[in-house]
Amino acid sequence: MGRPTELSPEERADLIRRGYRPIEIWVPDLNNEALRVQLQEEARRIAEADAQEGILDWIEAAGPTDWDKP
């Protein structure tokens, strides 16, 4: 498959001049069987934990997190 069409040096320089910066993004390969098995196991464990009584009590007992801060 390879990379998408590369930018010319001029196009790259123009984007940088306009305030953009290049980045590379890696995403999970859902065709990878080992990853799919891991994700299925994690989903099963999440569903099992969600079905247990008292999980919300445990979450509240864990206390506030950084996400709760204004």
Rank of each mutant, 00 (worst) to 15 (best):
N32F: 12
G54A: 14
V27I: 04
P28V: 11
E11K: 07
Y20H: 05
P28S: 06
T65L: 12
N32L: 13
P22N: 01
V27Q: 03
L35P: 01
D66F: 10
R18S: 07
S8E: 11
I23M: 04
I59A: 08
G63E: 09
R21W: 08
A49F: 11
E53Y: 04
E11N: 04
G54V: 13
E48N: 09
P4T: 11
L30P: 00
L35F: 10
Y20M: 03
P28I: 13
K69P: 01
A34V: 12
L30D: 06
W67A: 10
R21N: 01
R36F: 05
D68R: 03
I46K: 11
L7G: 02
W58R: 12
L35R: 11
W67R: 01
G19L: 05
Q38G: 08
R17Y: 01
E10L: 14
D29I: 07
V27K: 03
D14R: 10
A43M: 09
I46C: 01
E41A: 15
T65D: 04
P9K: 14
Y20P: 00
V37L: 15
R36C: 11
P70H: 06
G63Y: 09
I16T: 05
T65A: 09
E41D: 15
L15W: 10
R17H: 03
R3W: 06
K69S: 07
G2W: 01
R12W: 00
E42T: 08
W67K: 00
W67M: 01
G2S: 13
Q40S: 15
D68F: 02
M1K: 05
D68A: 06
D50G: 10
N31H: 10
P28T: 07
P70W: 06
R44P: 00
W26S: 13
M1Y: 07
G54W: 12
E33H: 07
A62D: 12
I16K: 04
T5W: 02
S8I: 11
E42F: 09
T5A: 09
I59C: 02
K69L: 14
I16M: 08
D66P: 02
V27Y: 01
A62W: 11
P22S: 02
I23W: 00
E11M: 05
N31R: 14
A47N: 15
I59G: 00
P64W: 03
P9D: 15
L7D: 02
A34P: 00
E42L: 13
R21V: 07
I23Q: 00
K69R: 14
E24T: 05
D29T: 07
E6L: 14
E6N: 07
P4I: 12
G19D: 02
Y20E: 04
R18I: 00
G54K: 13
D50E: 15
V37Q: 15
A51K: 13
Q52D: 04
D29N: 15
R45Q: 15
R3V: 03
A47F: 10
A47H: 12
L56W: 05
L30R: 12
D29M: 10
D29Q: 09
P9G: 15
R12E: 13
P28Q: 04
A43H: 08
R3N: 08
E10H: 08
